[in-house]
Amino acid sequence: MLQLYVTGMSPKSMEAIENIKQLCDEHLKDAFELEIIDIYKNPERASEQHIVFSPSLIKQLPLPRKTLIGTLADTAKVIKALGISFK
């Protein structure tokens, strides 16, 4: 399960959304559930998860929990960090 925390229409937020979408479609398919949360709209959830940076990608499951920040442009790095093999 993946959660992407963004800040509304900020440029990097929008980039990250685009990138994670592409990533999910091409490499993750049905392996991961993706949730996108706008911390402007949902500040409580951000503080629950102790989000500091935006954009932030949190892998909740499978354990261990992992955090990645930034635009997620480097596909290879993201996939490695999430611990999955290239399809």
Partner: peptide, 12 residues
Amino acid sequence: EAIKAGEVDGFA
């Protein structure tokens, strides 16, 4: 790395 590359533009 991400911060240095300017990939972050928001702080909570």
